[in-house]
Amino acid sequence: MSVQPASAQPLLEVRDLRVSFGEGESERVAVHGVSLTVREGETVALVGESGCGKSLTSLALLKLTPGGSSATADVLSLDGDDLTGLDEDQMSNIRGKRIAMVFQNPMSALNPVLTIGHQITEVLRRHMGLRGKAARARAVEMLELVEMPDPASRVNQYPHQMSGGMRQRAMIAVALSAGPDLLIADEPTTALDVTLQAQVMDLLQRLQKELGMAVLLISHDLGVVAEVADEVNVMYAGRIVERADARTLFREPAHPYTRALLQTVRDLESADTVDLAPIPGAPPALGQVIPGCSFAPRCPLVFDRCHVESPPLRTVGPNHEAACHIAEEVMSGKGSPDDRV
């Protein structure tokens, strides 16, 4: 199946998304003005460590942020339709139908007291108007599509009767049953063993091509991202600090954080004789306020300006943006481990 040509209008557009907890003086901002664009059929990755706000960002797209938080955005549109003003009822017609989501832990997404078949037919009835035998036949088809072994009998099983890998497939089947345009996959393989991880990533990629969906992949694993993403957004402390097409980002990182992460992962691949040069310190806790650039306390290239002025995300090359005062120097390799030695 061919991917449709990129139209002028993106599938998903978010401008200046902010998510915060609490009010007034006790307000803690978890996501600081994130902007994202996902075009049809494309895979966009949102990478970062725990507490960077990547999962909150993805939940905010579906207006599912947890209680006690508030989220605002200048623009939140899906295929040209404005979502900002939609109420809960209208949003529930979008969720599952046009934007679907799969999670790290299938047990939290699947209903433990309903069979897999029931959970798929529920989506089919609600969003596609399918009922009875037709819905059931479609449910078996969905399980076939996700390569569930023996789909005709698995359709009658409960989640607890399945193995971890099968549950992951079942969750994907439920998510895809209404034929969404966009699939948000939040750490879809993190809880799986490496051989299952490969199976599930291959499956997601195949389904994306066959169904022509766009995928927003939330992950901490740069290896997984490199294998599947067209465009990569790196998040740190609630902000996107770098965005580029995958090849550029992995070849020429322009933010010291991206570069250090890549270096760490590559050093790990090398033999035990190579010493790791880890990023010192820990990522800031969610909502922790750091003056200036939030990476400054851990950055090897930090200088005075970094502590006062928060660098905006700016264009540093073709289809390449970074939030660093000296991004050009970082791209040219300044201060890299090779440079220091």
Partner: peptide, 9 residues
């Protein structure tokens, strides 16, 4: 996290 993993290793 990856960056902390590297410190511990």
């Amino acid at each position: 996290d990856v960056s902390v993993q590297a410190q511990i290793l």
